[in-house]
Every structure is written in structure tokens, then in C-alpha cells.
Amino acid sequence: MNGATATADYDDAGLLARLRSNDEAAFDELVDLATPRLLSLARKMMPSEADAEDAVQDAFLNAFKNLPGFDGRSKLTTWLHQITVNACLMKLRSRRRRPETSIDSLLPEYLPDGHQKKPQKRWHEIAEGGIEKAEMCELVRSRISELPEQYRVVLVLRDVEGLDTEETAAVLEVTLDTVRTRLHRARQALKALLDPYFAGDTP
């Protein structure tokens, strides 16, 4: 019943008990406690700030509705994290503003003997700090947003949010192999999208 861990920096079990007894203040506490982290997650998955805030709001409303069914085996914040990912996925799926591009054209091509068709040029060293960094981050964010959703989501959860393969598979309800394949393809595709800016003699 009680799955709160010793590493929790707040009283997870206590808060859950208060939520279950409809303590008004407990709901407000949970919103204050969890929103910054969930909003940070949603911003990485959604195309705009308004979409991210909508997804977080949807996630909380879902969580409040489903609280009686929450088994308490994971931390409240972990549970909310999963619900937020799902809220983002639902929103993204309901839109489909533009058709998803195939990722295949962004993957390396090989000769019949298995060697690379086009040799990979060396990348510049990544600049640190200053305005250059801000511009670079903006560039990378815009290229990440071009990745098809199913790849972008895995990239965000694994490489940015730091979830491991098992956790990502559980959140997305896919197999471990699917997570590994999508992550690898997402990184390769992003590399291809960034190649023109970082590879060889092109500025």
C-alpha cells in the first residue's frame, strides 16, 4: 500500500493520505510542489508554452480524478510525471497539424559492402557560453521539434529527462527494444539535421 521511499524530500505517504481524505490544502500543496517539474517536462514535449501549460493542467485534472485508483506503489510525483507524458501525447495526437515526415531520409546510407555511402565529416568543437550558446540551443531546439513525435518523445525522456530504458518503456507502453531503436534513430536523425551547422567547413 505504502510505497513512499526514504529518498523522498517530502512526506509522500502523508501527502497522499491527506489527499485521500480530501484535505483542500493538500491539493494546493501538490500543485505547488509538482507543477514546476511537470511544466519543465511538458515544455520539452509541446510546441508552445500555452500547449505545455494546457497539458499540465489536463494532467492534474486527470490525476485528481484518478486519485482513488492510485495504488501508491510509486511516488506521487512519479505517477504525475507519467500522467503528464500521457497528457502531452494525447494533445499531440489530437492535433497532427502537419503530416509526420519519415525519418528514413535522415539515417545513414550504406554501400552494398556495408560501408558509409557518404563519409562523415568531423564536427566542430561545441562552443561554450555567451550568445553563441543561446543561439546554438535555439537551433538545436528547432531541429528537435522537426523530429517525428514518436522519436522526439523518446529522445526527451531518455536523453533529457534522464529516464532509463525500462522507465521510458513503461511510460510509453512499448517494449525495451522499441525504446532503444527509437532513441538510436532519433539521435541519428537529429545528428543529420545538425550536420549542416556543425560538420566540416560549413559555418
Binding site: 531546439r141 536523453d159 539521435r187 545528428k191
Partner: peptide, 11 residues
């Protein structure tokens, strides 16, 4: 570097 940039850009 792509992995590092992705992390840097979205953190």
C-alpha cells in the same frame, strides 16, 4: 555531441 547538445538545449 548530438546527445550532449540535445540535453543542453532542452535543459
Amino acid at each position: 555531441k548530438t546527445v550532449a547538445l540535445g540535453r543542453l538545449a532542452l535543459t
